[in-house]
Design a protein around this nucleic acid. Structure first.
Ligand code: MN
Ligand code: MN
Ligand code: MN
Ligand code: MN
Lengths: 248, 248
DNA sequence: CAGAAAAGTTAGTACGTACTAAAATACGGT
DNA sequence: ACCGTATTTTAGTACGTACTAACTTTTCTG
């Protein structure tokens, strides 16, 4: 017999970092950094489509598809995910709760770094990507309190509440607006710092008012008025800018 | 052949969390959270004695001695540690540098949590123990800047500089002071939150002036004047209080 | 609808980290 | 010098995570 160990008692979940939650009540549910990131990625892919595909996940996480398959089975075993063999993966309610808490941590951290520690908005994502796994609920709530419980991160993405509610809005893309239309920038999609910096330098940030002046054919530039300046940006870049259409 | 992989090219250091340092220059040296904690523990044990013993390490890290043996071999292979078989382990210069940077991160984080996020001094250690592995140099320096580059953490321990210098002072213990002697509290050793809270509630904190009023025999209580109140504390607790003896 | 391409899974391996059990070494005291 | 205890190391195992290669299933496409 291999010692009465891996029977019922959870053996301390190797590799998982205890964040001081995981109270006795019901399930401790200590997840590794990797598992958490998978769940977040599945959440995002589910939002921008249907069930999350293995390859799409592999792509986003920069991990081989075979490895993703394996992890998905582990997550399924933990009841965090439901995979329809060969047809994609969805979060269970439990998995979604974990993902939303992680997203809350991520976005509050990003907000705090920008508001209190002088970080640029294009420079916070990677830092948050690591800290989100280490920060205790106590720390997160302290940051949120200091910031006055913000509801959106520096990129305009909504911050889930501590109880896991999120105000996801369906927004148009700047690239899809008609010529002549006005809109308010709600946020910028995309985690690429270069894109964020580029847009930021041109004044395209959450809250700013924009107006489409013209659009060139053959995927040509879109000319937008931002503040009192005109900017010509590519449809590719514009596609990442989410806007809230506005009356005249 | 098993594919030309684990030959010379470091294969991305599995399990290590990239903190955005690890520049191309010379060695990337991406360490896991565990390796970092071992190095820190070795540093501390070396300070309070000679070479760090395997059992002492196992004890401090709450890990089986056999596992420690294994990790020490890995750290030795990485050139961070030098083990004299059966006779303890010391840090190499490289290992000490890693340890000091980690300690810097830890102590700046603790300082920041207390100064800016309303944490109690007995409540920051565990948080820092995790964040120290995730925080980038950029974040650490931003925190330090905001605090005005503190030189000691909330427990009075010195903070190494960014270049790895530390001002370790040999201090007396409160338990060792003579009756009638006055001293300034320099810091409190010990990571046990209960001890910290206990001492804090009695006004025993870094910077405070104390005077030994009496000491009972048979390991009896030590009576100390703190501010205008007298406190009777056990020699065990007093042993953790480091003091700087003072003229009259 | 057949065949090819795309998407996904399995098999086999590696590595970091941890554990227990057992063996080796060191050391203090007689 | 010898013995028993304490310390340390080795051996063998487990598990999470990742990889490549090979296979299977699904989905397009002509
Ligand atoms: Mn982000
Ligand atoms: Mn992450
Ligand atoms: Mn500490
Ligand atoms: Mn640590």
């Amino acid at each position: 017999m291999t010692a009465a160990r891996a029977v019922t008692t959870t053996p301390k979940r190797r590799g998982a970092v205890s964040r001081g939650d995981g109270q006795p009540p019901s399930a401790p549910l200590e997840l590794t950094l990797q598992a958490e990131d998978y769940l977040k990625a599945i959440y995002e892919l589910e939002r921008e489509g249907d069930a999350a595909g293995t390859n799409a996940l592999a792509d986003r996480l920069d991990i081989a598809a075979a490895s993703v398959s394996g992890m998905l089975q582990r997550l399924a075993r933990l009841g965090l995910v439901k995979t329809e063999r060969y047809h994609g993966t969805r979060l269970t309610a439990a998995g979604r709760a974990v993902a939303l808490q992680l997203i809350r941590r991520h976005r509050i951290i990003e907000s705090y770094l920008v508001a209190r520690l002088g970080f640029a908005w294009d420079d916070v994502h990677d830092e948050a990507e690591r800290l989100e796994h280490a920060a205790s609920p106590q720390l997160i709530e302290a940051m949120a309190r200091v910031l006055g419980n913000p509801t959106a991160d520096p990129h305009g993405a909504p911050i889930p509440t501590a109880s896991g509610e999120i105000a996801e809005r369906e927004l148009a893309s700047l690239a899809a607006l008609d010529v002549g239309a006005s809109a308010r920038v709600a946020g910028v999609n995309g985690r690429d710092p270069r894109l964020l910096r580029y847009l930021g330098e041109r004044g395209i940030r959450p809250g700013v008012k924009v107006r489409i002046e013209s659009r060139e054919p053959f995927d040509g530039p879109i000319v937008v008025t931002v503040g009192r300046e005109k900017q010509a940006i590519s449809p590719g870049a514009a596609a990442h800018v989410r806007v809230e259409p506005k009356a005249p």
